[in-house]
């Protein structure tokens, strides 16, 4: 791997912990199916490994992985669309004036577009929160995620991480304080 000129490097060992949740949310918001989203994330990592030599280090690791995921999402929709029978396509093109037909397939919203205001806003919000979480010290991020996003009980989190409840609350408190500052400008309307 050429070094010196590159600013970013790939560290596949840390991919899952560092990016899996971010990519997963990205995928879920586009395919609306948790199982498919899971598969797409996995395929993204594997494809990333396969083409790691093409990584030039000009973009961050995450940006690069997101770009791969985008292609995976597009491929996913191509695949399911090609399965859905060619008859519908033929009918559509042979009678373009046919306004009686209820060609939902053709009229369905573009799955890659999230123009609906609410969806877009929530997605941006989700990404903003995750980028802020990514800036936290690892332990704070972990505790915050387990407690807030996964909604685990204090006891379970303490057991998993081998800390006591007062440690936990200090970590969460610090995490929340940092997150408030991080999200402040854009998301807290005062």
């Amino acid at each position: 791997m050429p070094s010196g000129t590159t600013t970013h490097q790939l560290q596949p060992d840390t991919w899952v912990d560092a990016h899996a949740d971010y990519l997963y949310n990205y995928a879920v918001s586009r395919v609306s199916d948790s199982e498919i989203a899971h598969d797409l994330v996995q395929e993204t990592f594997l494809a990333g490994l396969g083409s790691a030599k093409n990584f030039k280090g000009t973009a961050s690791e995450r940006t690069w992985l997101v770009a791969i995921l985008k292609r995976k999402v597009i491929d996913h929709y191509r695949k399911i669309n090609s399965k859905k029978g060619k008859a519908e396509v033929r009918m559509h093109y042979s009678s373009q004036e046919d306004s009686e037909g209820n060609w939902l397939e053709e009229r369905a919203a573009d799955p890659l577009s999230t123009k609906e205001h609410g969806v877009l806003e929530n997605e941006e919000l989700g990404q903003a929160i995750q980028e802020c979480i990514a800036k936290l010290p690892a332990k704070q991020a972990k505790v915050f995620t387990l407690k807030t996003i996964e909604g685990q009980s204090t006891e379970d989190v303490c057991n998993e991480l081998g800390i006591n409840p007062s440690n936990l609350w200090v970590l969460i408190h610090r995490a929340r304080t940092s997150l408030m500052a991080c999200l402040d400008k854009n998301w807290f309307g005062e």
Binding site: W15, V16, Y24, V28, G126, I129, Q130, T148
Partner: peptide, 25 residues
């Protein structure tokens, strides 16, 4: 902040799913 986190409906892969992906990698 609590409301924002709820609103974003963030999801995570379970520990088991992550282990599975790590193994694949």
């Amino acid at each position: 902040l609590t409301k924002l986190c709820d609103k974003a409906q963030l999801q995570t892969l379970s520990k088991k799913e992550k282990e599975h992906i790590k193994k694949k990698i």
